[in-house]
Structures are given as C-alpha cells and as structure tokens.
Design a protein around this nucleic acid. Structure first.
Length: 115
DNA sequence: GTCCTGACAGGGC
DNA sequence: AGCCCTGCCAGGA
C-alpha cells in the first residue's frame, strides 16, 4: 500500500517551490493541496524549516512561499530583510511592510499541469 | 510514551 | 472587518 513518506513529501515541496516563477508567490496551503494533503500547510512550513537546516545541494526560492494572506511569516528564517528585499527585487508589489499583493502575484502550483 | 510547539488554514463570533 | 478557537501532522524535549 501507499506508505506515507514524510521525506518524500518534503522533497516534493522543494521541487514545487523550485518551480515558482520569478516575480510570483504561492502559499503553504496551495502547495500542500497540490501535493494531495489539503490540511498539510503546516508541514510545508515544517519542510521549509527542515530545508534551511539541511542543505540539499540546490537552492529553492523559499522567499516566494507565503501564508494565504500574503504575509512573509517566514521572514525570521532569513537574514535581516532578505526575504522582502528579494521579492521587491523581483517586482512583487507590497500592500504592507511584510504583506504582498497576493491577488496580483499569486501562483497556483496546479499550473504545472497546464504546461 | 506523553506533551508542546510550529515558515498554516478555516470557521465562528 | 478583525479577533479567537480548533484542526492538522511531524519533530523534539
């Protein structure tokens, strides 16, 4: 049977995140939903946290992953304002100091299927 | 083994 | 609109 493999899930998360287009952002919930775990938003965040402490060998645009409100909830895991700076550098519009315009830049992982 | 926490989300008030 | 509570699952103490 399909045995649950957390490690695999993490790997999936990294691969999805790695494909977020420049200047786009997505949410933890959207990623977990795409991976088939609708209520696994927290695990996506957990995966990201795990990624930071365990280098994989390739980098992922973790700064493009926000919560559903577009808030940079994970900015504390970056150096200073690295997360916000990178997003601004990519042309992402901010509504607040640490809140981006999700409506304008949201990227749905399901678009991968359409390619 | 139990308890607590967390880079979240959704529903209720 | 905003605040609070609950559900979710994996890890670490």
């Amino acid at each position: 049977m399909n045995k649950k493999k957390p490690n695999d899930f993490y790997q999936r998360v990294y691969e999805v995140v790695a494909q977020i287009p420049n200047g786009k952002v997505t949410s933890y919930g959207a990623i977990s939903k795409y991976l088939g775990v609708e209520s696994g938003a927290r695990m996506v965040g957990y995966a990201m946290n795990n990624y930071v402490s365990t280098e994989l060998g390739f980098e992922i645009p973790a700064h493009r992953v926000l919560n559903r409100l577009g808030q940079l909830t994970g900015r504390a895991h970056f150096e200073g304002d690295t997360m916000r700076e990178r997003l601004e550098q990519e042309g992402v519009e901010f509504k607040e100091e640490y809140t981006v315009n999700m409506d304008k830049h949201f990227w749905n992982p399901f678009e991968l299927e359409l390619l």
